[in-house]
């Protein structure tokens, strides 16, 4: 099993506020090669779930395993390394570094892992930009790119280190229908070509058709799944 969550609970306890059970005893297994779509109303805990899978937040109780390694028994170094090599992330918010060009942004994950030499990294980043159809924008800064173009750069960046898992959080919610379709097709194509495992939060049920499996969430639990 590539990712497995066992009885995970995540409670947020902000100061001077009621604690929130964002994830409430959730168990889930994602086998290698799946394309999982996660649906649920706002506040259902979808983002929290993705963050837990990537080790970006610590579960209050329960276990998160990636390739049967417990994320929270690893030190910061190993955890960071695992994120760097195995996980690609597409965020809900604009996440390109404004001071770097599109190409530099795509190559960024290589900086922390140093798998490729500088030239090779640039070549690979260039290929990824070509794949997402942005070859002509390689030296453009994020502020000169449209929202859809930015999101495609983010997808290319997520693929830079050839991850096993691609986690995408409402990658298309800010985009128009046409662009949304383009990006979703891109994900489908990536899934088919590289066999990467994708876990994707989608904001409406008509997007489920791009995935191989879908999960419905509510109140920090899985309501239904196939």
């Amino acid at each position: 099993m590539l990712i497995s969550l066992k009885d995970v609970v995540k409670i947020y306890a902000p100061a001077k506020e009621q604690p929130v059970r964002a994830i409430n005893g959730l168990s889930l297994e994602v086998p290698r090669g799946d394309f999982v779509a996660i649906l649920g109303r706002s506040g259902a805990g979808k983002t929290t779930l993705l963050n837990l899978m990537a080790g970006l937040t610590r579960p209050t109780s329960g276990e998160v395993l990636v390739e049967s390694a417990n994320l929270w028994s690893l030190g910061d170094r190993e955890q960071s390394r695992l994120r760097n090599r195995k996980i690609g992330f597409v965020f809900q918010f604009p996440s390109l570094l404004p001071s770097l060009t599109a190409l530099e942004n795509v190559a960024l994950p290589n900086t922390f892992g140093k798998r490729l030499a500088g030239d090779e990294a640039r070549v690979r980043a260039g290929q990824l930009l070509e794949m997402v159809g942005l070859t002509d924008k390689r030296n453009a800064f994020p502020r000169h790119l449209s929202a859809g173009q930015q999101q495609r750069v983010v997808v290319a960046r997520a693929l830079m280190n050839q991850p096993d898992i691609l986690l995408a959080d409402e990658a298309t919610s800010n985009l128009d229908e046409q662009t949304e379709q383009e990006i979703m097709t891109l994900f489908q194509q990536i899934h088919a070509e590289t066999g990467v495992t994708i876990v994707m939060v989608v904001h409406s049920s008509y997007l489920v058709r791009y995935a191989t499996r879908s999960i419905q969430m509510a109140n920090g639990k899985i309501l239904s799944g196939d």
């Binding site: 970006l56 960071s80 994120r83 760097n84 892992g113």
Partner: peptide, 11 residues
């Protein structure tokens, strides 16, 4: 936070 998600260590 994004840098951390991309694999940068705390150090």
């Amino acid at each position: 936070a994004v840098l951390r998600a991309l694999g940068s260590t705390r150090r």
